[in-house]
Design a protein around this nucleic acid. Structure first.
Lengths: 192, 192
DNA sequence: AAAAACCATTGACTTTTGTCAATGAAACGG
DNA sequence: CCGTTTCATTGACAAAAGTCAATGGTTTTT
């Protein structure tokens, strides 16, 4: 249990058996069925979720249409960090695209781990740093590249996600309408 | 010297006088003239820069046109984090929009501080967490809001930057052409 | 003080993306 | 297994953004 979680953690921060057991004692397992919410807009985000199995998405709703901020499959972490850290209402929804098994770090677990185990803080720092860099790149490609190139770089960067997730969600992730993505794919196929 | 730097630092992590002096010994001051580069694409980013005074921008160049990833004025921090942490070539440029005074944390200072002073690690974690949350919001508004609303929320969120920076750079930051922003401003003025 | 560079605005036109509606295929649930 | 839902595609048209070129006002430089 928690295998993937500790594998990812130890890639960044080596742990002794004792430290692993210590951290393990703060974690909570959770299963989610397809279409089930982990978080709904307006609630307070109660945990950071690590995906052991399955696939989730985080999205906001604006004028009735959904905009996907993030996907998370095995090995990824997902949360509304702002709501989690401040206790304010969440502005994002998180739900399961497939049946999923999660490892949850609740707010109190998070705070106690930060105090009790310096390596946890280091892991958090590295985790967020990586997420920040990835997000910077995504934003850069969003403001500087045409949709077609954004789409190819997405499928190259995340081929696994591109296969598991319906196309209209990838369009939503890229910030375009499904029809637009469909036409771009057609154009790319024709060119070839 | 370093007044603003320590003010911002101590807002997040209280320090004793001794800790402050310790950290101070790792910092490097630097002045930059308007238009001068702190970092050019292809170089390795040698420092994280905190802005004591002045204004900088970070941008990438794609097909001859510039795309601004970030502005940084007094109290902000700017860097090509990926290049800084990995030693790989930078993909961004950073230069001064006004004469500026910076506080630099070099790579070796960063590494030594992480080892020597846990509060530095905590500060870094909080700093990046805040930056990450801000970036998530920006991306969300980029994929979900029409340009006009993005512009108003920008000027409301960062009125100081909106005033100090030429309009075509704000357009670049928002991912549209200067003509488009000009027309949107006109439309907004007419409506009122 | 004059020349040069930079900047915002505007117009005419093109390209890209969105909207609405319809169709057929595939996936899903009972 | 059948009916329902979800999904991707396509067409016709509308709206938004980009391109190119010109203008006039600032600011900067010499």
């Amino acid at each position: 249990m928690y295998d993937l979680f500790f594998q990812k953690l130890q890639e960044k921060v080596p742990l002794t058996d004792q430290e692993r057991e210590q951290i393990k004692s703060y974690l909570t397992p959770k299963k989610l069925r397809k279409r089930q919410y982990l978080l709904q807009e307006g609630e307070v985000c109660k945990a950071i979720a690590f995906v052991e199995k399955g696939a989730l998405r985080e999205y906001s709703v604006e004028n009735g249409s959904e905009h996907i901020l993030q996907f998370a499959i095995e090995g990824w972490t997902i949360s509304d960090l702002f709501s989690f850290l401040t206790g304010e209402q969440a502005t994002y929804n998180i739900d399961a695209l497939e049946d999923a098994e999660l490892v949850l770090i609740t707010r109190s677990a998070h705070e106690e781990l930060l105090k009790a185990q310096p390596k946890y803080e280091t892991y958090m720092r590295l985790l967020i740093t990586g997420a920040y860099i990835a997000l910077q790149r995504r934003l850069t490609s969003n403001i500087s590249l045409p949709v077609e190139e954004r789409y190819t770089s997405f499928t190259e960067m995340y081929p696994d996600i591109a296969q598991r997730v319906p196309q209209h969600m990838i369009a939503s992730f890229m910030g375009v309408k499904p029809e637009t993505l469909s036409r771009i794919r057609k154009k790319m196929a024709d060119q070839k």
